[in-house]
Amino acid sequence: MNSLIQYTLRIADSSLILGQRMSQWCSNGPTLEEDIAMSNIALDLFGQANGFYEYAAQLDGSRSADELAFKRNEREFFNHQLSEQENGNFGTTTVRNFLHDAFNFLFYTELASSKDETLAALSAKSLKEVKYHLRHSSNWLIRLGDGTQESNMKVQESLNFLWQYTGELFEMDEIDNEMLDEGAGVDNNKLRKGWDEIINSTIEKAKLTRPVDGYMANGSKKGIHTEHLGFLLAEMQFLPRAYPDAKW
């Protein structure tokens, strides 16, 4: 598979999987406003994923966007492991999304000036929405961290647990390097500084403690995932796989 397709799929996969996680909150949100907010975010993420899948499908020539989303197995998905982590409590979801939104914000900012016109256009579009997502997750992180003793404890625990999935966001492999050399991709290492600034300033406002870097999980660029992705895909892909001609 060529590097551009692979690169595009990685972006699409992270959006789709995080979107699927957010859609699981639909009708389960802590308040009506939050339920609506999370469903809206899910919808944005699905829309972003769709744009990137359509592009990957066009480059691929043999599979449609739907086939890419619904007919690939776990080891053929390249989303960040962070995006597939379970929703947990509302605080866990807030922390996971905050860590991801901060990365996405910086990533799309850079990719918006890609030499690949389609990647640039899709990124510029996504960026507008991700700004809202980041504001939403940051505001909640601050409210929960600087809330009650219990809410502070819960988000700190989530932060400590999810931290191991943040190292992978900044990794570069041969595909990233090839895309970067062509002026079409992003140097993920360079995003680290901006990400640290967003994370540190928000964590401080939220009266939380930044975890110390320890073991960092990785492997999603090669299709290695945590146990949660398989279950997520089983639910998400069931219908189109069981009823391949289903229309709705």
Binding site: E33, E34, I36, A37, I41, L43, D44, Y132, H136
Partner: peptide
């Protein structure tokens, strides 16, 4: 502003 997200993606409450 009650919520940045409303009944449709383009509106807040």
């Amino acid at each position: 502003i009650l919520s940045e997200f409303g009944a449709t993606a383009c509106k807040s409450m």
